[in-house]
Simulated assay, not measured.
Amino acid sequence: MTTFPADDPDKAAFTGILPAAPKPYVLGNGEGEKSLVFDQLFTILASGDETDDQYGCWTMKARLGDRIPAHRHFKTHEFFYVVDGEITVWMDDESDYHSRTTLVTGDFAFVPANIVHAFKIENTTTVFGAGTAGFERFFHAIGQPTDLTEPQGVYIPDFPVMRAAGEKYWTQFMPEFQFRD
């Protein structure tokens, strides 16, 4: 079980936005649990609470930006589906798989657990993502709650906040990692 209790601080600020149980619901354009992480707007559309702890899904909207730090998720498989725009994704299994791929509208990338990865937004982009249940609120743990509907501004979490979020959501940040371009 990867879901967290209702009073978890990564959930409590968003109480009432999602149903917190597996029952039907509809979200309008721009609705969901939203956090600004760096210069990216993450909107959680479904969490482990709504999916019987099966998966979580979100959107990420961003403008042209810097590459986010290399990292790996120990328990989370995730994917990137480019709804609109362009994003470069780096993946490395620290053995024989090394890739740098620029995804454009309609492209898809799968990142299994334990694969070191990073991404860079190449222009204004919207990505639909999903991953192992529970991980979706990682974005709240390192981000700032917001009611924005488009990305604007920058929120840079302190490294202790990032480290704590990483520990809670089984993620290791690897800023020194060198991808083979």
Results as ranks from 00 to 15, higher is better:
residue 4 F to G: 00
residue 5 P to N: 09
residue 5 P to C: 06
residue 5 P to H: 11
residue 6 A to G: 13
residue 7 D to E: 11
residue 8 D to A: 04
residue 9 P to Q: 12
residue 10 D to V: 07
residue 12 A to R: 11
residue 13 A to V: 14
residue 16 G to W: 01
residue 17 I to V: 12
residue 17 I to W: 12
residue 19 P to R: 13
residue 20 A to E: 02
residue 24 P to E: 06
residue 25 Y to L: 12
residue 25 Y to V: 13
residue 25 Y to F: 14
residue 25 Y to M: 10
residue 28 G to N: 14
residue 29 N to F: 04
residue 29 N to C: 07
residue 31 E to F: 11
residue 33 E to N: 10
residue 34 K to T: 09
residue 35 S to P: 05
residue 37 V to A: 15
residue 38 F to A: 12
residue 39 D to W: 05
residue 39 D to Q: 08
residue 39 D to P: 08
residue 41 L to M: 10
residue 42 F to K: 03
residue 43 T to P: 13
residue 46 A to W: 08
residue 48 G to V: 02
residue 49 D to C: 02
residue 50 E to G: 05
residue 51 T to R: 01
residue 54 Q to W: 00
residue 65 G to N: 03
residue 66 D to V: 14
residue 66 D to E: 15
residue 66 D to S: 15
residue 69 P to W: 03
residue 70 A to G: 04
residue 72 R to D: 01
residue 74 F to C: 12
residue 75 K to V: 13
residue 76 T to F: 02
residue 77 H to M: 01
residue 82 V to N: 05
residue 83 V to E: 09
residue 84 D to K: 09
residue 85 G to E: 05
residue 88 T to D: 06
residue 91 M to A: 06
residue 92 D to F: 08
residue 96 D to P: 08
residue 97 Y to A: 08
residue 97 Y to I: 06
residue 98 H to S: 15
residue 98 H to G: 13
residue 98 H to Q: 12
residue 99 S to W: 01
residue 100 R to S: 10
residue 100 R to Q: 09
residue 102 T to L: 01
residue 103 L to Y: 12
residue 104 V to I: 13
residue 104 V to Y: 13
residue 106 G to F: 04
residue 107 D to A: 14
residue 110 F to T: 03
residue 110 F to K: 01
residue 112 P to N: 09
residue 112 P to A: 06
residue 114 N to E: 02
residue 116 V to K: 06
residue 117 H to G: 10
residue 118 A to H: 14
residue 118 A to F: 14
residue 119 F to Y: 05
residue 120 K to R: 14
residue 121 I to Q: 06
residue 124 T to S: 05
residue 125 T to Y: 11
residue 125 T to F: 14
residue 126 T to P: 09
residue 129 G to T: 08
residue 132 T to Y: 01
residue 132 T to P: 01
residue 132 T to W: 00
residue 133 A to T: 01
residue 134 G to A: 03
residue 139 F to E: 13
residue 139 F to I: 15
residue 143 G to M: 03
residue 143 G to L: 01
residue 146 T to I: 08
residue 146 T to H: 09
residue 150 E to A: 13
residue 153 G to L: 10
residue 156 I to C: 13
residue 157 P to K: 00
residue 157 P to Y: 00
residue 160 P to H: 11
residue 160 P to I: 15
residue 163 R to Q: 14
residue 164 A to R: 01
residue 166 G to A: 05
residue 167 E to R: 04
residue 168 K to N: 05
residue 170 W to K: 04
residue 172 Q to R: 07
residue 172 Q to T: 09
residue 172 Q to D: 10
residue 173 F to K: 06
residue 174 M to Q: 15
residue 174 M to V: 11
residue 176 E to S: 15
residue 178 Q to G: 11
residue 178 Q to L: 09
residue 179 F to L: 05
residue 180 R to T: 07
residue 181 D to Q: 09
